[in-house]
Simulated scan of single mutants.
Amino acid sequence: MANFLLQRTVPLPLPEAWRRLTEWPRHADVVPLTHVRVTTPEPTHVGTRFVARSGVGPLAFDDPMEVTVWQPPGDDDTPGLCRLEKRGRAIRGWAEIEVLPGPGGRARVVWREELQVRFVPGVLDRAVGRVGRYVFGRAVNRLLRMA
């Protein structure tokens, strides 16, 4: 399994950083060739499921996910934590999104992920981790910049 960690500090209140990262359809706006479909009623809660479909034509695959921890931050700088379980045939693993108080009233975002990509041997886990860190790092940066 490939693991990676992203950390960002942004000039946003915790609830706004959280909103920008956990509005699932917005992820399609920042990840190329991806569409996100939420399959359960809103608002997001433990048990919310969504599918990110990535690729083109016959080379596309589904990445179904389920929210297993949902603790939004409070207006009083209480940290927030979301855990997603990836349950697809092509990609398995989990992701955690955490927003914490940072210096000067800023939000500190910590994104942890563990990926297992089907048909990719474990010897390539470091490469998968580097690619994941790059792709998700760009997505997180863009999500946090989008109002």
Rank of each mutant, 00 (worst) to 15 (best):
P41E: 14
D62Q: 14
D29Q: 11
R106A: 10
T22E: 08
R83S: 05
D63C: 09
V140L: 08
R118D: 15
R53E: 13
F119Q: 13
G93Y: 13
A95R: 12
V120G: 03
Q71N: 11
P121H: 03
G102I: 09
R26H: 05
L33V: 07
G132S: 09
A147E: 14
M1E: 05
P58R: 05
E98T: 14
W18T: 03
D75T: 07
Q116C: 03
R133V: 01
R112I: 06
G57T: 10
C82F: 10
A52E: 09
V38M: 15
K86Y: 03
V109R: 14
P64N: 15
R112C: 07
L14I: 06
G104Q: 12
P32Q: 06
L33M: 11
G105F: 10
P79S: 00
T9H: 05
L6M: 01
R92N: 08
P72M: 08
T34H: 00
L6E: 03
P25H: 10
R20G: 00
G55S: 02
V56C: 04
T78W: 05
V140G: 06
G47M: 05
P15V: 03
Q116A: 12
H27K: 04
R20T: 14
T40V: 04
V123D: 05
W111V: 12
E98G: 09
R142W: 06
L12G: 02
L124R: 13
G105W: 13
G137Q: 02
R133E: 11
R118I: 09
V128K: 10
V110M: 02
M146Y: 02
P79Y: 00
A107D: 04
R108N: 09
A60Y: 00
C82P: 03
A2E: 01
R112L: 09
S54N: 03
V135G: 04
A2P: 02
R49V: 10
T22L: 07
P103Y: 14
V67R: 09
A90V: 13
R83Y: 07
P15Q: 01
V117N: 09
M146S: 04
R106W: 03
T39G: 12
L124I: 07
A127L: 08
